[in-house]
Design a protein around this nucleic acid. Sequence first.
RNA 1: GCUCUCGUAGCUCAACGGAUAGAGCGCUGGCUUGCGGAGCCAAUAAUAGAGGUUCAAUUCCUCUCGAGAGCACCA
Length: 587
Amino acid sequence: MIFYIQNQIKKAILKKFGIKIKQEIIIEQPPDAKMGDFCFSCFLLANETKKSPKEIAEILAQEIKSDKIVREIKNIGPYLNFFIQRKEFFKNICSAILKQKQKKARARCIASLFKSQILIEFSSPNTNKPLHLGHFRSSILGMSLANLLEEIDYKVIKINLINDRGIHICKAMLAYQKWGENKTPESEKIKGDHFVGNFYTLFDKEVKKEQEVKKMEKITETNFYKEASEMLKKWEQGDEEVMKLWKKMNQWALDGLKKTYQRIGIKFNKWYFESQTYKIGREIILKALKKGICYQRKDGAIEIDLTQYGLDKKVLLRSNGTSVYVTQDIGVAKLKFDQFKFNQSIILTGVEQIYHFQVLFKILELLNFKWAKKCVHLIHEMINLPEGKMKSREGKVVDSDNLLDEMEKMAQEEIQKRDQNISSKELKQRAKKISLAAIKFHLLKVNPKQAIYFDPRKSLSFEGATGPYLQYTYARIQSILRKIQHEIIYNATDFSCLKEEEEWELGKRIFEFFNITKRAAQDYNPAILSEYLLKLASSFNKFYHQYSILKAKSKEIQTARLALIQSVAIVLKKGLNLLGIEEIEKM
RNA sequence: GCUCUCGUAGCUCAACGGAUAGAGCGCUGGCUUGCGGAGCCAAUAAUAGAGGUUCAAUUCCUCUCGAGAGCACCA
């Protein structure tokens, strides 16, 4: 449809001005539906034709004739506005959507062999505490981006890089050794990640105490901290006792984290563990040293000079020969390429790591890895809580599990207000889906680059621009479809029955979907899709409120409307699923 | 101190450099005879400030003010 209009415009331009347009003709929708269904703005042609945009619009409007698809063309100022034959449009779009399911499945089988491969690394938690809201945002966002990229036909590999070694891990271990009394998550009946996390915060409390009592300036001067450092050394030497403790606690934490992932519907294709990868980078650096890409300082540390690229000098290996953070990441980046030969490798992290990845990518480039240019760092901003920033060490964290519990309770109350006879099993299932929709949508409707202000008490609602609103709209449609024998045969449906403006608005909305998904994926921004779904739901509810489907004036109108709302439902479901949100049949 | 990001309605967020800056929440007033009121309709309200580039600026550039982040032999 759009393609057809684009061609008409191209032809007219060629005929009237003798210009062959190579780039895509951009078709938009006018701000007011009265102006036209679609429009083309003539500003860009002004230079080449040496005419004013207004004149160009006039000339083109005269040249393009109305036909089976385009009903009328109007020029308003510099804009060329098209009115579409609605019957054809509805038929096209509804049948395309209703047919889509089977087509997609087939296409997927054939194409999967030729698809380009894209890696996306996200979430990447530490094994010393539960998932906090920052990780939660990364997880939800990463999952949705992966879905979107798959939708535009990439083969996507979702990666979770677990940070399971380092001083912070030893802190939790040390605290457990000192005060754990051989308790286990099972004996205390709490999730493993929370169990471990409690010891981590305990460690920090004790260190602060010591620091205050002894009036030390730096935490690193405290005995506790020194003991933790000692433990890290032992860990690196493979000390039997330390390794045993490490394995035990890591497993606890990991089991807990996996439960949370399962609860929020996040799956990974590949797990990396820093304990297994942190040494890879070292070899690469030692080779680079021989080639003169980096140099050894007098104190023995190996450093690279990035000042000519607007970055600083960066140490790559400590004077004792061990790796730092970038070194590890260099190793993991190479490992990824060796294993997957990716076409693109995305890493999604919080915005605070932006400098780190600038450094990393520059180093990869200097190391002469040809795939360095295929690495992309995506960022998301943080979540701000009313009391200030989230800091796990100060215990001000809203952790994901507690948040999910709270929301589930609230959802249960809402459901019971509306339906007292619901079975407890059904209640739980619905509450889970609805509360997840509320949280996920709240995080996804905001541009990733924008910080989210999050007040657990106020921010999460089930009304207005929310996930549950979308689920509700879907459930409404399903409710209608359940009540009537409907077998939509789009070829036999008379779409000329759809004469109302609200129906037309819905039709145009559905049509937008394909472009929206593409844009959301290309911009790495699920918020584009979220916004769209709200508009779609709102258009439907407007229509729903004003016109009846089951009691339509004629059978023909009813059939056409059924085809229309079924298309809406399919798009809503598809859109929600791309955001990682489940649709729901009854609310 | 240096670097980066961001300032849109009372609040939380939208707006490929393009037509009259849109939503939700809150506040105010409506919607019983229709398929689910987690809904619909109406009313109110905003581009931090000053310059510049452009036919056209919330969007690009400069400065001022304000908020946040980053600048380790931490991760």
